[in-house]
Computed example of a mutant assay.
Amino acid sequence: MGSLPVPAFPSKHCLDESSHIDEATLSALFKSQQSHLNFFFDHIDHSQTLAFTRALLNAAGTVFFTGVGKSGFVAHKISQTLVSLGVRSAFLSPVDALHGDIGILTNRDVLILLSKSGATEELLRLVPCARAKGALLIALTSVEGNALAAACDMSVHLPLQRELCPFNLAPVTSTAIQMVFGDTVAIALMEARNLTKEEYAANHPAGKIGKSLIFKVKDVMKKQDELPICRESDLIMDQLVELTTKGCGCLLVIGDGYRLIGTFTDGDLRRTLRASGEAIFKLTVGQMCNRNPRTIGPEAMAVDAMKKMEAPPSPVQFLPVINDESILIGIVTLHGLVSAGL
Rank of each mutant, 00 (worst) to 15 (best):
P7I: 00
D234G: 01
F52W: 12
L4C: 02
G207P: 06
Q80L: 12
A130F: 10
R271Q: 10
V95C: 03
T245E: 09
P313T: 01
K246A: 09
L251P: 01
K116Y: 07
L137M: 11
N146W: 00
G103E: 10
K216L: 11
Q287Y: 02
V172L: 12
F40H: 06
T284F: 07
P166A: 06
L113P: 01
E232D: 13
A275E: 12
D183W: 11
R291E: 12
A8E: 15
T106N: 05
K282V: 04
F281E: 10
L252Y: 06
V185S: 08
T62G: 03
M221W: 06
M309E: 06
N107D: 15
G61R: 11
A135P: 04
R54S: 14
V110A: 12
Q33V: 03
D304N: 15
D304H: 15
A8K: 15
L85H: 03
S71A: 14
I329S: 01
T284K: 09
A130L: 10
D16G: 11
V63R: 06
P159A: 06
I78R: 07
Q80K: 09
G247P: 03
L137W: 09
E325W: 05
N168A: 08
C129F: 14
L92A: 10
L158Y: 08
T141E: 06
V143D: 10
L111E: 08
A97F: 09
S3V: 12
V110T: 13
R131N: 13
S233G: 11
P5K: 07
V68S: 06
H157E: 02
T173Y: 01
F167M: 12
L137A: 10
K282C: 10
D304T: 11
N290A: 04
K12P: 00
A59T: 15
I209K: 01
M237K: 08
L92V: 12
N194V: 00
L235E: 01
A311I: 00
L243I: 02
I104P: 05
S11H: 05
T196Y: 00
S71N: 07
Y258R: 14
D22S: 07
L85G: 03
A139G: 00
F9E: 03
V156D: 01
F318L: 15
R271S: 11
R54K: 15
L37T: 15
L235D: 01
V338G: 00
V220I: 13
R125M: 11
T173L: 00
S79P: 09
I261P: 01
P128D: 11
P293F: 02
G103D: 11
F39R: 02
M301A: 05
K77L: 07
L29D: 13
A132W: 03
I21W: 13
D16V: 03
R271Y: 10
P166R: 06
T81N: 04
R88W: 01
R54T: 14
R162I: 04
P94E: 09
L56I: 14
